[in-house]
Nucleic acid binder design. Structure first.
Lengths: 346, 346
DNA sequence: TGACGAAATTGGAACGTTCCAATTATGAAG
DNA sequence: CTTCATAATTGGAACGTTCCAATTTCGTCA
């Protein structure tokens, strides 16, 4: 069944033209006569020709492949980010190489190398934990457009697209304070990441602004996962003076916090206010619906892809650092009455 | 900064050998002398050479790329499936092209075509809803190894890897019956899919086996999502004779059912038994932990990848249809006491 | 020293496309 | 019927690798 590959010269022979003409038809050139074009297209259909993009790339040295590497695909935030990227990249006629590093920088090195070997014309990277500028140096020196997303890396010298973590946290904590909370915890996340630091800064700022000092014991790190959220809230509830509300590192942690609360017969929203971060798809449909700082992962993927495509098209632009605005979406889990409110933040 | 591409002949010149020798080094041939190899490797490092896999593919006509197309990447079941595939494919020295169809068969057609143009040497497909054998015909005729995963398509003539949906449903419903439930619903999923039919058959079989006829009103379809679960349980609770337990189409539906139950002040596990299907990562950590039929998405991805690699290596094997066993993981949401039990099913 | 087999190296053709410069066909104007 | 411009078409080189067959180098043994 595996018959010989059919190539442009087969088509050319079948259509009674030269391979150059076939090539012209393939790339939709206006130079070719309508009737010739029709003949060629017929031959293409009849022989079941499939275009060999590899050969074309070899000649043109530009590939229509973009790579995206994420640090944790099982986290739905990143899955959504990837589909956002995919949607714009596809409609620009590119195709997406996706790799998952699982937070391992060794794997990250491998997949980036592999993508370069395949001649990707641009790369969107959500770096694994602990990635430093030097890791990316060979890549950026090669002149391939790169955009960092979610996590920025100082000194990398490439474009980045992050969300306004600090402003988001400020808005969330202000909202909790307005609702009368005085003892507010910050739960979950790895403290050695820039995203954690930014969100925690916002948390501290809002507290300071209201004249509520922040107690260190109320900042409790953990894995940024559902299980981590359960652990963090348990630790928080062991405190002598318990908090009555929490801003969580992300939605996964927030769900875990809700779980942990229920395990202690406390109802999130009614007995304890919880706010998440990210606004993943399930946030809206959970019970109680999660109040959260929306960063719109899919939209972020789209914007990152647009940024990358822009860089691919014009030659070698200034790297830009875009900070994407963020908004607080008030739902039930923070004890809000009923009506849904949305606050634009930055 | 975007300097000239460095090629094997540059390396050859720098190392004082021929391009053929460089090529030999590149593919780790034992034919080349140790000291020559060292010289070449040094030159490769010095010049910052990056291998051009496209050019190599052109010559060898086999590509080290495998494609995976899934119907809904935002569903964590498929995200996990993809990371399972990725892990084995990577360690076999392949790289993964991932595309998301969002259940749209038009998009599916496009991405499959694009993958063929890039010369993938095999394809793992979780087909979009409504895909029929004819859609896949040109692909399978071309002789590219294909394995269908999750959803089989009758008459496609390619290998498939599905889970034993029917046996899983039987085990789940038997368990509910053992625990004294008599009115058991089947909630969620699109009735026009084979997976739905298989799971519902199992549900009916177990009911019949116990002499409990199944009432049609207790089978309630919906979107296979969290929101769909909320809708389905609402409908179920409108019935004159309410069910006391439900087998859900998948875990997402099950979570939605739990949400809907709580919205009516019923505690899943205590007041109503719910069992899911798939065993996604969050099932274990949810509160209450979800009793579910585990299909191990990541493991399934791994097995699919192994199956595909096997087909790529040997030339043209018989298509096999593998039905992957499934097991009931008893946690809290079905009202089980405390101890965790696992039942092997098939 | 010469011969010989093994080990190492090499030049050139090939893979399927695109691009360039060159050629041929077409038609309008003189 | 020439001449020219324009529209279509074309052959061949090039892209960066691998593979084959051929060649060179080397060590060993007679």
């Amino acid at each position: 069944m595996a018959r010989e590959r059919v190539t442009v010269v087969d088509i050319a022979r079948a259509a009674g033209v030269s391979k150059s003409t076939v090539s012209l038809v393939l790339q939709g050139s206006p130079l070719v006569n309508e009737v010739t074009r029709a003949k060629v297209n017929a031959a293409i259909r009849d022989l079941g020709y499939v275009y060999n993009r590899g050969a074309a790339n070899l000649r043109q040295a530009k590939s229509k492949i973009i790579g995206i590497v994420v640090n944790d695909l099982t986290n739905s935030f990143f899955a959504e980010l990837a589909v956002g990227v995919d949607s714009v990249v596809q409609s620009a006629g590119f195709v997406q190489f996706l790799a998952n590093t699982g937070e391992k920088s060794e794997r990250q090195r491998e997949v980036i190398a592999s993508m370069r070997e395949h001649g990707v014309s641009g790369l969107i990277i959500s770096p694994a934990r602990g990635t430093v500028a030097a890791d990316l140096a060979p890549l950026v020196e090669s002149g391939i457009p790169v955009v960092l997303v979610v996590r920025d890396i100082t000194g990398a010298g490439v474009s980045s697209l992050t969300s306004d973590n600090q402003a988001g946290a400020v808005a969330a904590v202000r909202h909790l304070i307005e609702r009368g909370h005085r003892r507010i915890a910050f739960l979950g996340g790895f403290p050695d990441t820039a995203v954690f630091q930014a969100r925690m800064c916002g948390y501290r700022d809002a507290l300071d602004e209201a004249g509520l000092g922040s107690a260190d014991e109320l900042v409790i790190g953990s894995a940024p996962s559902r299980a981590g959220g359960v652990a963090a809230i348990e630790q928080a509830m062991m405190l002598k003076e318990r908090p009555t509300a929490a801003l969580c590192f992300n939605d996964a942690v927030a769900f875990g916090v809700c779980d942990g609360l229920r395990a202690r017969r406390l109802e999130p929203g009614a007995d304890f206010a919880v706010i998440g971060f990210d606004d993943v798809i399930e946030a809206k449909t959970a019970v109680p619906a999660l109040t959260t700082v929306s960063v719109d992962p899919q939209g972020m993927g789209e914007r990152a892809a647009e940024l990358l495509l822009k860089q691919i098209n014009i030659g070698r632009p200034e790297p830009e650092a875009i900070i994407s605005p963020v908004r607080l979406v008030v739902r039930q889990s923070c004890g809000a009455a009923t009506g849904r409110r949305v606050k634009e933040v930055s």
